[in-house]
Amino acid sequence: MPVPILKQGKVLIACIQAALTDEDLVRLKDDLAEGVGQHRSSGVVIDVSALDVLDSFATRMLRSIAQMTKLRGAETVIVGIQPDVAFAMVQLGLVLENVQTALDLEEGLELIAARAKERQA
């Protein structure tokens, strides 16, 4: 099932609804890479609150999405990692270095807004 990508102002929101296959993740990456340029977005929020598992491949994909969107001028924030998922990831050594994380969508949008302001200043 492909992940719907919503546009909200200058931000793209990818809301993951259900467990994803590896192909879905790759596709999400491609779509976001495309979308960031197309919509001239300044930020990307990926909501993973519906996921109760984040494996190494998913983590790697999220990390590469973040790096890639940065290269295209948009900040990525991962939001809604569940407590148990966070703990499991840390125990497996899957730490999202250099990737912004936030509690939920609201926080994520706020973070991106703050970043945009910083850049303007």
């Binding site: 990692i81 407590p83 998922v85 990831m89 840390v90 125990q91 509690l103 994520g108």
Partner: peptide, 12 residues
Amino acid sequence: IQTVAAARLMGA
């Protein structure tokens, strides 16, 4: 360190 990392994943 793990706790700190996990908290960061949740945006704290």
